[in-house]
Amino acid sequence: MITAVRKPLEEIMGFAAPYSRVLLLGCNECVTVCYAGGRKEVGILASALSMAFLKEGKKLDIVEQTLERQCDPEYVEEIAQTIDQYDAVFSMACGCGVQTVAGRYKDKPVFPMVNTMFMGASERQGVWAERCAGCGDCVLGRTGGVCPVARCSKRIFNGPCGGSTKGKCEIDPGVDCAWQLIWDRLKALGRTDLYSEIIPAKDWRSAKDGGPRRIVREDLLS
């Protein structure tokens, strides 16, 4: 999923300063699963923001709504009838959702309430960690199902570097060394032979270095 964390309240207060009525818009997808921008987080932020304003003797009308998916025009259309009632939209979706709303309602200010972090997986309740860098040319098949692009601090394709100690990365003892994980998996799979092949320099065009990316599926076009 795409993970996110709420922005500091102070930054959000700054966005809100010129307005008196805003739509606080959540998303039922990834940000709900990572407890950053779902229906409940919309309620908590509305409450916090409302109190923060009242404390200063000001009033901010906050209308709470949560869409099925903010990155999908079909669902973003749902607010077309009511959008004129608001001075601005405060989106709790990831950057994709914020931009879909901003792209559809061109004259309406839209602000992000969360910082979009990474594509990750849940390690346990309350902990998410980066797993995929979306580089467009997956190497997991030759690295034992552990990604060196997303999980090695130096995205080394032919690791490990000299800083791997007791399974941990030199940058932080809380970070696993991706190449230790890769090696452990290759051993478990009986495929240590894969290690001796040199993985050649990557073609980063499939990643964002080739410019903003699109997927076009002719078979699905309407």
């Binding site: 304003f53 009242l54 404390k55 000001k58 009033k59």
Partner: peptide, 11 residues
């Protein structure tokens, strides 16, 4: 609760 005092001012 400062919120109550502020609410009076806001109103």
């Amino acid at each position: 609760n400062p919120v109550k005092l502020g609410a009076g001012k806001a109103a």
